[in-house]
Amino acid sequence: MTTYILQRLFIFFPMLLVISFLVYSGLELSPGDAVSHMISPELASTITAEQLDAMREAYGLNQSFITRYWIWLTSMVQGDMGYSMAGGVAISEIMAKTVPATLELSMVALFFSTILGCSLGVISALKRGSGTDNSLTVAGMAGVSIPEFFFGLVAILLFAIELKWLPVGGRLLPHYETLWDRIPNIVLPSLVLALMMTAGAMRYARSSMLDVLAREFITTARSKGMPEWRVNILHGFRVALTPVVVLIGFRLPLLIGGSTIIEQVYQWPGIGSMFIRSVRASDYPLVMTISLMYVFVVLTASLVIDVLTALIDPRVRLGKE
C-alpha cells in the first residue's frame, strides 16, 4: 500500500511541473502584456515608449521567457505568490480570502451530490423498469443537459425572490456569524452546484449497481438465506461503489468549473469569481496562480481517488488483478 502511494506521488510532481510550464507558456502567447492593460485608454496617448519600457523593466517583463518562468516557479514553491497587478495586493492575501469560500461551496456540493446520487442510483437500479426508475432517469437526463446557471437563476427566482425562503446570494464571513446563520446562504449555490454532479453520480451508480446485481456472487449471497438488504447493500452496493467513486473523482474538475459559474450567479466570493475578474483585467500573476492552483487541486483529487479506490478494492490494494 505504501509503495503504491509512493508510486503515485512519483508521477504527481513531474506532472505538476509540466502543467505549470504549459500554463505559463499559454499565457505568454496571449496578446498584449500586463503593462498595456495597466494603462487607461486616456493616458495611453500621452505616455511615451520609454516610459512603457521603464515600466516593463520594473516588472521584470523584458527578461527571457525561461528566466521569468524559473523566477515565478521558485518563488511560488517558497510560498511567495507575488502581487496582484491590479491594486498591488499580495496574492496570498487574496487566496486566503477566496479559497476557503470555494472549498466550502464545493465540499458541501460534493457531499450532497455523492450521497444523493448514490442513493437515488441504487434505488433506481433496485426498482429497475418501475415508474420510480423511469422518472429518475428522465430527471437525471434533465440534470445533465440543462446548464447550471439556468438552474441557478430559476432557483433564485423561486426560492429567494418568490418564496423568500433563502437569500439571493453572497456569503457571510465565518468570524461574523455562527455556523447556523451561514447555512441559508450556502444552501442554494451548493444544491444547484450539486445537481449536475448528482445526475451523473446517479447514472453511474445505477448502471454500476445493475451490473453488479447480475453477477453470480449476488445469487450466492442470496442462496445463503440472507435478507435482501444485506444482499443488495453489503454485497451489491459495496462492489458497485468502486467505479462510482472513481467516476465521481474524474468529475471533480467539472465541479471546479461549475463552481466558477455558480459563484458568479450567487456572488459567492470564491476563487471562481476572482479568476474571472483577473482574466478580464489580464492580471497575469493572479491568473497564473489560480490556474496552477486548479491544476494542483485536480491532480491531488485524482491522487486521493486512486488511494481511495485502492482502499475499497482489495485487488488493487494488494497489487493483483
Binding site: R215, E216, F217, T219, T220, A221, R222, S223, K224, G225, M226, P227, E228, H235, R238, V239, T242, I312, D313, P314, R315
Partner: peptide, 28 residues
C-alpha cells in the same frame, strides 16, 4: 425472499455454483 424461505436457504438446502471465479464476492 420471505423469512421462511431464507431460513431454509443456506441452512437446510445449500447450493454450489458452476464457476467459483465469479460465485465469490471479490471484496470480502
Amino acid at each position: 425472499n420471505g423469512k421462511e424461505m431464507r431460513e431454509i436457504r443456506g441452512s437446510d438446502i445449500a447450493m454450489i455454483f458452476q464457476d467459483p471465479m465469479t460465485a465469490l464476492n471479490p471484496v470480502y
